[in-house]
Design a protein around this nucleic acid. Sequence first.
DNA 1: TCCATTTTAATAATCATTATAACCTTACAA
DNA 2: TTGTAAGGTTATAATGATTATTAAAATGGA
Lengths: 153, 153
Amino acid sequence: MIIKMERITVVELQQMGLKVTPQREALLKLLNGNETHPSAEDLYHKLLRRFPRISFATVYNTLSKLAEAGKIQELDIDPQRKRFDPFTAPHHHFYCKVCRRVFNVGDDVSPSGAENLLNATDVNGHRVDTVHVNLRGVCKDCKDSDEAGKWQQ
Amino acid sequence: MIIKMERITVVELQQMGLKVTPQREALLKLLNGNETHPSAEDLYHKLLRRFPRISFATVYNTLSKLAEAGKIQELDIDPQRKRFDPFTAPHHHFYCKVCRRVFNVGDDVSPSGAENLLNATDVNGHRVDTVHVNLRGVCKDCKDSDEAGKWQQ
DNA sequence: TCCATTTTAATAATCATTATAACCTTACAA
DNA sequence: TTGTAAGGTTATAATGATTATTAAAATGGA
């Protein structure tokens, strides 16, 4: 999986009309280049190291503003919680129901069809803003370390 | 959108090892042929008419057992709640962020690519069980009845 | 440096979903 | 039929992610 590196800068924060705070700079640092698709809680816990009094609302607020501005993606692939992805170039996701990790899947590996839905802006007359392709199953690692198909479906 | 009609019968409940109860029969009746992608609450409220003391747990329990058996799909397209779809043949979904309706999108209108992910069982070594394609935006009706792009993104 | 504005932190509220436990019903077989 | 074990239903509480609220603190332009 090679996805073009993207990096959110403090200048972009300002361009979005957001103030630059230490909390936000730290959050950007955690997000930039991150391919683990962290949840808000993952990020919160990492931020706790440097900001022992940081609040959940701070994390959620900034994340949703970044998502609103299209700087990150809010993924809907984890049945339990939102996951965040700083890579906004078109790609899909695979969720392992055993280890709950989220893997990138290139959009060269895509559902087939006559039209290219990924870049579609109109489908059946509806205006399409986002397209998410969610694959779910058991990842290679969990499959390999599993004796006798414990995780059938 | 034409999707092959599928119908869940009481015999199928029994084959699943589930007992046939009036509540479950009523739920099947609500689901069969239903193209509105109802939430658990939608179904609960419809069931309340005939079963004034029905509980939410009954609805959720049966829905998750039906989903487990592959008789219905649990959709992840609505950011707020699960939506349920009795049509299990491959197709995609469009969610309108204004009216919150979910529309079917044929899998003939699909993200393009070399491989057919919809039927893929292996991607990058991972075992794929389900593939969901989620489109989101503003539906035709809401777009048409909207003055001057109130719903940009 | 000042100050209007935004952000943060702490806390409470929300809300969909899941868990629990007592009671009830179904299916099956005697 | 009718008894009974297994499973289902209801009512309720618990869970857990996310959102809302508000006073205090920090930011950034003047």
